[in-house]
Design a binder for these strands. Structure first.
Length: 423
RNA sequence: GUGGGAGUAGCUCAGUCGGUAGAGCGUCGGAUUGUGGUUCCGAAUGUCGCGGGUUCGAUCCCCGUCUCUCACCCCA
């Protein structure tokens, strides 16, 4: 047997119904906010991720599926989708349109990691990006849209963690402050945190080491939000305006001065939503502003902000009501011809019912009515229509309610309406 | 890349102190050839994850490996 490759999985019915409903809700909500879909290739030049996601990240130096193609090009299966969107923005000179671009995507991403709960090598993300505007209202609107979407899925009690990590201009000063703080506490740092401090200092704020967590939570630990008013008054004003807008829009958020993001391109606003029930991988979505990314990719200096939702994780903790409704879906009718001679008539009947908008599953190859009913029940039909010689001659059908175990004879004329009343 | 747990029938699992395996559910056939879910009878399940070692003999012990799973790392 050939099995699916490590860290990938098949999504089978009826689970695919749930995924489809989630994606349909995303498309619906995002459209309401003026977003359009963008589809970028799963395969990109390796250089794209090196320059955007950043060489200091694990994603780039050990988690990418990259290979050299037959033409000698270094290609990579995208580990995230923001870089691809930014690349397309530059490549197609979208800046020339003189308008903000509000884009969303739904698609597979690939990272070569050890799989665990909520973490796969092939996973799906639903994301949105706004390219152009840099004002706080853009950030706020994006989060309003996000919670509109989450609310539609039935999530309650979720809240977004919010922080500002400053800009490219202020980052070095902040990193310096972090390093000097730890210079006196270096011995409490483990190997991982020592490495972080050297390679990607902001990540130390994310440490799971209790001793380090205590230090980071202590009063004299430098926090970006505290430094912002002096280091970068504009970013500080942006941050404060965003918070005010979120309060006004009733977006549930919590300030978290220790929140940082793993990707190098984030500036100013960063946010994350975590949820219970996902084990150690508890972030269902993350995002932030990336005001320098487009310029880094050779485009015109264009600010941007976006989020990416881990669809696999989202589906994993989806409220039961939404999941149930998606799986049960529209109620269906099974049409069961009793004999071979009844198949033609059954197909005609099925077609006419479908024209009236009824979901019909024609059960062919049934070995007798008993077997046909069994199959109908197993495929989840609500009603079963039995059609044989006797029914054909009388111009009726026998309709069984599979849940109630009742049967009644109904005339062929006006059958669709009669069925709809029973579905 | 590191560490823990697990791999036996389609599914959930039991079992053999080393003598090539069983239950329930499901599937298939029949009782009932135009009416299912109840009941009864019968049948098929499977290189016991894969490879090697020890042994007269390994599903069981040992080693390796793969996959799943949880955690670290990292992140959605």
């Amino acid at each position: 047997m050939i099995a699916s490759v490590k860290g990938t999985r098949d999504l089978l019915p009826p689970e695919t119904r749930v995924w489809n409903r989630v994606e349909a809700a995303a498309r619906e909500v995002f459209a309401l906010y003026g977003f359009d879909e963008i589809r970028t290739p799963a395969l990109e030049a390796t250089e794209l991720f090196v320059r955007s996601v950043g060489e200091s990240t694990d994603i780039v130096h050990k988690e990418m599926y990259n290979f050299t193609d037959r033409g000698g090009r270094s290609l990579t299966l995208r580990p995230e989708n923001t870089a691809g969107v930014a690349r397309a923005y530059v490549e197609h000179a979208l800046a020339q349109a003189g308008r903000p671009w509000k884009l969303y995507y739904i698609g597979q991403q690939f990272r070569y990691e050890r799989p665990q709960k909520g973490r796969y090598r092939e996973f799906r993300q639903i994301g949105a990006e706004v390219l152009g505007p840099a004002d706080a209202a853009t950030d706020a609107e994006l989060l309003v849209m996000l919670f509109d979407f989450l609310g539609r899925l039935g999530f309650t009690g979720l809240s977004v963690s919010l922080n500002s990590v400053g800009t490219e201009a202020t980052r070095p000063a902040y990193v310096e402050a972090i390093r000097s703080f730890f210079s006196s506490n270096e011995k409490t740092l483990g190997d991982d945190d020592r490495r972080r401090l050297a390679e990607n200092p902001l990540r130390v704020l994310d440490s799971k080491d209790p001793a380090v967590q205590d230090l980071v939570a202590s009063e004299n630990f430098p926090r970006m939000v505290d430094l912002l008013p002096t280091l970068d008054p504009a970013a500080d004003a942006h941050h404060r305006e965003l918070k005010a807008l979120l309060v006004a829009s009733k977006v549930p958020f919590k300030e978290n001065p220790l929140l940082v993001r793993g990707l190098d391109y984030y500036t100013r606003t960063v946010f994350e939503v975590t949820a219970a029930g996902l084990g150690a991988q508890d972030a269902i979505l993350g995002g932030g502003r990336y005001d320098k990314l487009v310029a880094d990719l050779g485009g015109p200096r264009t600010p941007g902000i976006g989020f990416a939702i881990g669809e696999d994780r989202l589906v994993d903790i989806l409220p039961e009501k939404f999941r149930k409704e998606a799986i049960e879906g529209a109620r269906r009718v099974a049409v069961i011809p009793l004999e071979r001679a009844d198949v033609g008539e059954s197909m005609t009947l099925a077609e006419s019912l479908r024209k009236d908008g009824i979901l019909v599953d024609l059960v062919t190859a049934a070995k007798g009515p008993g077997h046909g009913l069994k199959v109908a029940k197993k495929t989840g039909a609500a009603l079963a229509i039995l059609l044989g010689q006797e029914e054909r001659e009388k111009g009726i059908v026998n309709v069984k309610d599979l849940a109630r175990r009742t049967q009644e004879s109904l005339p062929r004329l006006g059958l669709a309406a009669a069925l709809r009343a029973r579905l």
